[in-house]
């Protein structure tokens, strides 16, 4: 565990919808300009935008579709992630019953 000498504050985000790959991002801000909710504001010059209003994201994915370098990933909050299983595992249940 890394050494902790002092504490800070973090606003408690209920979700972090967008993650940027800093190596791929070219800082063009096209994602920010296409967002209909305007959840992002400009970041440092050449860098990716800041997600200033993450709670307002409606998860449409337009920013991801617009990104010319594939630098953005979009993920629903944990509670919204659905589950799938291999069908074969259900059939196995039936045999056991």
């Amino acid at each position: 565990m890394k050494e902790i000498k002092e504490f800070g504050f973090r606003q408690t985000p209920p979700a972090t919808p967008l993650r940027f790959n800093a190596e791929k991002c070219i800082g063009c801000n096209r994602c920010m300009e296409v967002c209909m909710i305007d959840v992002m504001t400009p970041g440092e010059k050449g860098g990716h935008p800041v997600v200033s209003y993450p709670d307002e994201c409606w998860y449409c994915g337009c920013c991801v579709m617009e990104c010319p370098t594939g630098a953005i990933s979009l993920h629903h909050p944990l509670m919204n992630q659905t589950r799938w299983v291999e069908k074969a595992s259900l059939l196995k249940n039936r045999k056991e019953n």
Partner: peptide, 27 residues
């Protein structure tokens, strides 16, 4: 569809969802 291209189709595919053998839970 409006909210499925990226968060469902792209993400599920990348996470390995295979519609020929996987089934998606209803709630």
């Amino acid at each position: 569809e409006g909210k499925t291209n990226v968060p469902v189709y792209k993400n599920f595919t990348e996470a390995g969802f295979d519609p020929t053998k996987d089934v998606l839970q209803c709630y």
